[in-house]
Nucleic acid binder design. Structure first.
Lengths: 332, 332
DNA sequence: ATCGTAATGCTCATTCCTAGCATTAGCGAT
DNA sequence: ATCGCTAATGCTAGGAATGAGCATTACGAT
């Protein structure tokens, strides 16, 4: 047996995003898994498309990922970007991967232009807010915050031993969930998920410790392994990137109306935007240019069709969508 | 032999940064390595502190990294952040790691408060512009750009077969190196390095292909493996993060003058900043607060000492240093 | 005292945003 | 045809944030 060559398995996980009908979707597959610590039989849980990196066959990590996704969802990826590499002991999600090999998982974000029914197998597009209901502020503050999350977190903070730790927890809750002096920062998806995990308010937390589910319902739909964490990482990254790189256009057809563009951004950012200001920002910012054509049947006055202006890449250092937030959940 | 458990070695690489005397430093160690494809004997090349991830002993990747750095440099890290995971075949730097195990390298960025002479072994703090001389615009545009880089890149672009490819290369050169309509974007350190690598203008490019060094001198000091690429990633990340997270303060003592703060930012960003505007931004932005004391012996009027205002973390969503660029290399 | 070097104060003209108001145009129903 | 609804587009008053400097103040050294 070779000396330092220990048992490491690298899992490549893809968060494939599309926006259809104004809703952000993530591509999932069903995985049959054994629920440890429970008497139940096998059950299917949602998972991201994933597969092991093959050190012999894959020339780069990204090529390995593309191969797996192609195989599991017959979708060929365009834009792909690496997210993060995790290897935390105890977050593998109650699956021992056979023989105790150490699992290192690398997450990727990929953007797809269309949410076609998605292939052969069990691949399925899911609304990403299914996993993070508290992240959708498009129609105002999600009720689950006041009803379950903040009370749950407050209890967790109170449960801390020393006063100093209680204070730290309180401050962390305020900053990540935008309470009091802090404001909601849509980019902190991962921080929020990690906090909920620590406070054992998401299903994975107890599962990973081998405990039975809590009596109160867990927040959002769980996923296998650490896949929900990876999805949270992807959402954070995408919401941030939106602002300084023209990534939205990877999710849109070559031509689109400004409303379609705005709805796509809103779907991703999880917040409503001021229509006129949004239009001014993208037009004056040189991100898009109108092509003469109009789109009828918009339900109102016909809208001009636009396309992405590639030239902006050379003109501006960080071309992205500023987010002119609409004060309240107001109509567009 | 276990089924899919192939030979993977994960290398943990640390880019440890400090700023001393207004210069950004990176912690390096010397590595004896065999230069493939050359008749020379072993020689010592600069490297980042690194070591393999131990799947049996390390609970998380980050803990593994901290262990290695502690061992090689007796420095204990504070702020640590993961950068990127690479596994490209052919970029391992002419070292076969014994028996053909696949090397996956994970880069980390760490910030240190002081550049003490750095420990026992061969650990040494190096000016990071030693590896990227073209990234330092503090005293104006680095001459190496006009003298070597742009001509070299232009030649590379011309050498492309089809016209279309030549056009693509030209555009890429313009955007990454800030030519013509594009402006220099200090964050694109990695993109610039990758471009130079492709154009074979850095030493690693030919070395990785087993070729002898080119006659014309290579740009910047090379490092082992893909370490210079990892350093470039770190610089990009740090230069970006500076603007939306108060990371500079991880590099400064608890109290400091505004000039010291500005010089630290300038050292990292590689550009001169407008003094009065910089002061206004950090003060009005609530990032710092004066403590009554003064520092004499500044060479001029005494300067007030400031400290980081932690409260800003709860007040603002993305507290960082805007960079009020100074038009020319002008004096502060 | 005089100079040189910094630290600080302030200004002014612009550019950017925020928050709306107002107008224009298809689509359907009456 | 006309009216009412829904969107798309135009525009603007005010306020806030920026970019570029000029001016003043305060040590240390000559």
């Amino acid at each position: 047996m070779a000396p330092r060559l220990t048992d490491i398995v690298i899992g490549l996980n893809a968060v494939v995003i599309a926006v259809t009908a104004g809703e952000p979707r993530v591509l999932t597959v069903r995985r049959v898994t054994h629920s440890l610590g429970r008497a139940t039989a096998n059950e299917a849980i949602e998972a991201l498309p994933f597969g092991p990196f093959d050190p012999a066959g894959h020339r780069t990590l990204e090529l390995g990922l593309r191969a797996w996704v192609g195989e599991q969802t017959d979708l060929s990826l365009g834009y792909v970007e690496q997210l993060y590499t995790f290897a935390d002991l105890g977050r593998e999600g109650g699956i021992s991967e056979g023989d105790g090999a150490r699992v290192v998982s690398i997450g990727y974000l990929a953007l797809a232009r269309e949410a076609k029914p998605a292939g052969q197998g069990e691949a399925q597009w899911m609304d990403w807010y299914r996993y993070f209901p508290w992240e959708d502020w498009r129609r105002g503050r999600p009720p689950v915050l006041a009803e379950a999350i903040l009370p749950g977190l407050a209890a967790w903070a109170r449960s801390a031993g020393e006063a100093e730790e209680r204070r730290r927890r309180d401050e962390r809750i305020r900053t990540t969930f935008g309470e009091a002096p802090a404001r909601w920062d849509e980019e902190r998806v991962l921080e929020r998920y990690e906090l909920l995990y620590e406070a054992e308010l998401v299903g994975e937390a107890r599962r990973d410790r081998g405990l039975p589910p809590a009596d109160q319902l867990a927040l959002g739909q769980p996923m296998v392994f650490d896949h929900r964490r990876i999805l949270a990482t992807a959402m954070s990254r995408l919401r941030g990137k939106l602002k300084y790189r023209p990534v939205v256009f990877e999710l849109l057809p070559p031509t689109f109306t400004l409303l379609r563009l705005q709805q796509t951004v809103e779907a991703l950012a999880g917040m409503g935007l001021h229509k006129q200001n949004f239009r001014r920002l993208v037009e004056q910012g040189g991100l898009v240019e109108g092509i003469g054509e109009m789109e009828r049947g918009t339900g109102g006055r016909p809208a001009e069709k636009f396309r992405f202006r590639r030239e902006v890449l050379v003109e501006r250092p960080a071309p992205g969508m500023r987010l002119p937030v609409a004060r309240r959940a107001g109509p567009h």
